[in-house]
Design a binder for these strands. Structure first.
Lengths: 212, 212
DNA sequence: GGATTGACTTTACCAGGTTCAGTCTTGTAC
DNA sequence: GTACAAGACTGAACCTGGTAAAGTCAATCC
């Protein structure tokens, strides 16, 4: 997960910076988990991380980003998955395969485990986090639209439409599954159903996209 | 548009309250249009409407709601349109017909006119407004899902999925069309294309929903 | 050794939003 | 007509996220 095992003598500075960022994110995530996102102030986080408020905002543009601090990596992952797909496969196909893999491997991004449910509980309890989650989803949707557009088969509007439909399917499947996890349904049953739903609905999207 | 022509001696109070609310919304909308949403402070609005800041927040829970002050009516309209649809018609059918009507009649909600473009320009320039617009769209999506669920043909997850696909189609069509209006394309060409797109994509949604 | 860079700090400030303790208006009951 | 209750509205203080400016201190470069 770390930047480089082969940092010769190099940048203590960068390491320290990364460490500070990580410390802030960790302490913040813990506090959010304990008391809820809105009940924790940025000042408290700064104090707990032994840093000034301004430093917090130097590392994270918004308070919400301390919670979603791994999203940039997620976007990277999606982009890579799609760009390295086998020749002749569509973007939708690559997305479908990625989703299936995530569910099977219980990947943090789209997969589920009991112990992830705290994360989602915090989101469910905070309007600000839901707004930011939606925004991050939109960014991914835009990225997806670009990649679909790059296939060259359709115009921009159609690419956006397809990307929106894909994200709707993913969001719906994920949210429903998360709700079931929080209701203490058995994970295995949830995952089986979740995977089946994603397969069906993404195939339907592919059809609809051809039709529209 | 007014509450009741047959208010005997009754509620001057309510009328005054509604008038205050309207005055605030009007003055705010004008100021937003002139200087942009973020550049206008709530204090300025309060002063211009000759009212205290607290009063502003008594009428509108958030600053953004002064701008989107007609959304509650829009939701009402959607619900009525769907509930009063001819027997045997699906929710998607009713939505499609409503969208077509709005475009044809250049209804403020989903239709387009040159002079609406100021409205959309203000939204395009403000992150806060975009967030709120998305949120309002989500509320409508949830309403739509409920109505689809009430048809009794599908489970809740499927209803949400369908509602999400519908809203994606509408959002995509509307945003693209708005962009063209702002780029000064001729309205008639835009509307023709916009209507055709909505028809195609909503039919595709209906197909996909059956398939999924 | 001296200059430069860049992470971090302190202080002060802004704007949205809430709380509270009222005042002023209006409809109602006697 | 007077008393009273409800409720729209007010003023001021306060909280929180977020920004600006100016400067401190350690690591790096030459």
């Amino acid at each position: 997960m770390d930047a480089s095992p082969d940092t010769p003598t190099a940048d203590r500075r960068e390491r320290k910076k990364a460490a500070t960022r990580q410390r802030i994110a960790d302490v913040a995530t813990m506090m959010f988990g304990e008391r809820g996102f809105d009940a924790v102030t940025v000042n408290e986080i700064a104090e707990a991380a032994d840093v000034s408020k301004v430093t917090v905002f130097n590392h994270f543009a918004r308070k919400e980003d301390m919670f979603f601090d791994r999203m940039p990596q997620a976007r990277e992952l999606l982009a890579q998955t799609i760009k390295t797909r086998p020749k002749g496969r569509t973007v939708v196909w690559a997305v479908r395969r990625m989703v299936q893999t995530h569910i099977k491997e219980q990947h943090p991004l789209l997969g589920l485990r009991e112990r992830y449910s705290g994360f989602w509980q915090v989101v469910a309890d905070s309007r600000a986090l839901q707004v930011r989650a939606r925004e991050l989803g939109d960014e991914i949707e835009a990225l997806l639209a670009e990649l679909i557009l790059a296939e060259g088969q359709v115009d921009e509007r159609h690419a956006r439409l397809t990307a929106g439909w894909i994200m709707t399917a993913i969001r719906t499947g994920l949210l429903t599954a998360v709700a079931r996890v929080m209701a203490d349904d058995p994970i295995e049953a949830i995952n089986k159903d979740y995977a089946a739903f994603m397969k069906r609905s993404l195939i339907a999207v592919e059809f609809a996209a051809k039709l529209a």
